[in-house]
Design a binder for these strands. Sequence first.
DNA 1: CTGAAAGCGCTTACAG
DNA 2: CTGAAAGCGCTTACAG
Lengths: 345, 345
Amino acid sequence: MSEKNERIRLKNVTSYCVAKEAGVSQSAVSRAYSPSGSISKSTRRKVEIAAEKLGYKPNAIARSLISKTSNMIAIVMADIVNPFYPNVLDIFVRKLQERGHKGLLFMVDRDQDVDDVLPQLMEYQVDGVVITSATLSSEMADRCMNMGTPVALFNRYVPAARAISICCDDVGSARSVADFLYTSGARRMAFIAGVENTSTSRDREFGFTAKVRELGLSPPIRAVGNYTYEGGYEAALSLFLLPQPPDAIFCANDLMALGAMDALRTKLNLSIPEQVSIVGFDDIDNAHWANYGLTTVKPPVEKMVELTLENLMNQVSHHDKPAHQASLPGELIIRNSVRVPVGVA
Amino acid sequence: MSEKNERIRLKNVTSYCVAKEAGVSQSAVSRAYSPSGSISKSTRRKVEIAAEKLGYKPNAIARSLISKTSNMIAIVMADIVNPFYPNVLDIFVRKLQERGHKGLLFMVDRDQDVDDVLPQLMEYQVDGVVITSATLSSEMADRCMNMGTPVALFNRYVPAARAISICCDDVGSARSVADFLYTSGARRMAFIAGVENTSTSRDREFGFTAKVRELGLSPPIRAVGNYTYEGGYEAALSLFLLPQPPDAIFCANDLMALGAMDALRTKLNLSIPEQVSIVGFDDIDNAHWANYGLTTVKPPVEKMVELTLENLMNQVSHHDKPAHQASLPGELIIRNSVRVPVGVA
DNA sequence: CTGAAAGCGCTTACAG
DNA sequence: CTGAAAGCGCTTACAG
């Protein structure tokens, strides 16, 4: 009982307590903590001393209620098992912190609809929503926008929606990969798809296939790996059951590419890149591990996050601005999983 | 301007609006959303219809302010680059969601003091704090406790603090590793430490070294890998510069163990496990990749998270209960990175 | 620059 | 079961 009282008492150092201690009004205390509050140096000093003495910290919840901005951004993630996303999350949260914002994190299953969690996150009056490695319906996106809560899709897009969307240039990057593989001498191309209904997998396949055709080759054979290591492993094996196995495989992400490499080397005893070239997408940490040296497309993650947040914050303060959609060029990182054509250093 | 108005208007569907629409009092609306609210079926129905019509969602911020519980738990993470932690985070957030709680995520640098972010997270009136892969001072832990905000350390502990602490049994698990390696025929043991001032690295080294001594072997030679892949890679190489290189290496985590494996195989052309045995700690996804097959200690992560949250929630509602400290046994997962002694299947 | 006062959107005794 | 009212801890016009 006494403990319980203690807890309540201790939590309750309010601006009134500080005002009393400092001999000023409660408004003065509030102003001392507001960047735009006009307050004299001496009053501020008095408040600071009293606050320090009492251990006062402004209550952000009360502030949110009255100011109608919580400084919280919801982050919805679906696929943290893919090592690409922890890094993305890390950058998001750090950049949020730099701007004085907080990240409210939600995890959804891959097959779960993001629409389900949106209502509960709206209850927390977040200023905006970032959705990563997941898609939401365009109706839901519109509903958020209508409620004044802007939504940004990271690495995904929904054609019809009024949502911000920042992607890597999947189509263009995939075309470069096809080009690069062709130059390296590959002629029988294969593609391992990720989760098939994602815009990333579709666009990477589209760009790759289109360019392969333009190069005059027969369209890539394909398999599906669902963006997992195991999926890539199995998909790669399946490609080598075909009468005409590929001499180059482009995987829709690195994780599948690493699975493919392990499958080819440990199971089929093929050597990479001598017999088969492999290219991935994401440039996750594992890609440069000594054992892999995976050639891959590196999306400009830092820039993408920055741009996402910039656009989101923009919409938070100027709701009337149109939602921005952008795709940034990826960079081809050349390592050792693709053979080098004769005559090229 | 009209857009701005629209935003404000649309955000403002309050319990009063619903009350008016439903022809009941505002209290009735509130009760309809409270599990303990005594309300008749018919009134509830009226409220539900009106709420549906207006698109009303209770404002969790306002609720937090009056009820003095935000249903938010802060999660502080330092080391998301280690694949062990994204998984931990995932489980934490999902379990939080199951309980109707939200996770407020903070990222700190490895060398940054967690003490720095605590004040800003306290402003958001979180009900509790989970700290993962990071340590905080015992003074700060006490300060949180005094403010009525319980703190739980996951996979770390601070001897003097009144904080909850849930760990894997690092000492015991490390002893088992020594035992297992000995049985497999290893006689010149080595240890690769993580970040040296962490309780996990220290305890794993302590248990391992103690058991190695008890077995009558000379104490393990050691190197430091700072819990990273590159660190493990370099540390392993350094061990083989010594006049008496080891025939078995226990690494304080998997990431370093994988780095060590790659170093030995690709750089020194040693075969694992024939020439050197390797054991890790964590059982991250990569450990069972076809190329590695790492023998490792698997902490009961799911149980540890559950226990952490259980203890935390307990302290949230009963502040007087003493903080619980526990360490759960890890499981040795045997794969192919340790040689099997002759005569053993 | 400063203080008194209203109000953000809820929950919860209180009285019926 | 129900409603009127107080109050959570702030911000922000408003008047000085």
